[in-house]
């Protein structure tokens, strides 16, 4: 399953979709919007994609991963648009006969996805903090 969606992601059916009796291991990764980074608070992230290329690159990643590991089923789902803290931005799920190859494939997929798939994120500006400033500051 390859999908780029503006809709809220429910990870459970995505993970269920890669389960098969041939698998001994299902490994999944969820990327979520982190609210606190050091002393910075994130009120939301805006994700933007180049949809045609992003879908193509996701499909290429799946094919490359299948050539490296004995993947039975794979799912790569990325959200776009405005996300609130805690929401899921990306899901990677793979099933393999054994856990080591499932861990390796899942790790490689999310790491490589973040390097090559044309999807960008940007902090949503905290308009309220400007409005709340006292006059003259």
């Amino acid at each position: 399953m390859i999908e780029i969606t503006p809709d809220r992601i429910d990870a459970t059916p995505i993970i269920e979709s890669v389960r098969t009796p041939l698998a001994g291991a299902v490994c999944s990764f969820l990327g979520t919007v982190r609210e606190i980074t050091g002393e910075t608070r994130t009120i939301g992230l805006e994700y933007e994609a180049y949809p045609v290329m992003a879908a193509k690159k996701l499909a290429e990643l799946e094919a490359e991963a299948r050539s490296r590991w004995p993947i039975l089923e794979a799912a790569l789902v990325h959200r776009v648009g405005r996300l609130d803290p805690g929401e899921i931005s990306v899901v990677v799920a793979v099933s393999c006969p054994h856990r080591q190859e499932a861990f390796e494939a899942c790790r490689w997929l999310i790491d490589t996805l973040k390097e090559v798939v044309p999807i960008w994120k940007k902090d949503v500006e905290d308009v309220a903090s400007f409005v709340d400033l006292p006059p003259g500051t």
Partner: peptide, 15 residues
């Protein structure tokens, strides 16, 4: 051909 400018993607960084 469809040409596009691709800034660094989201890999943990921002825009």
């Amino acid at each position: 051909a469809e040409l596009a400018v691709i800034p660094p993607v989201s890999g943990g960084s921002s825009l």
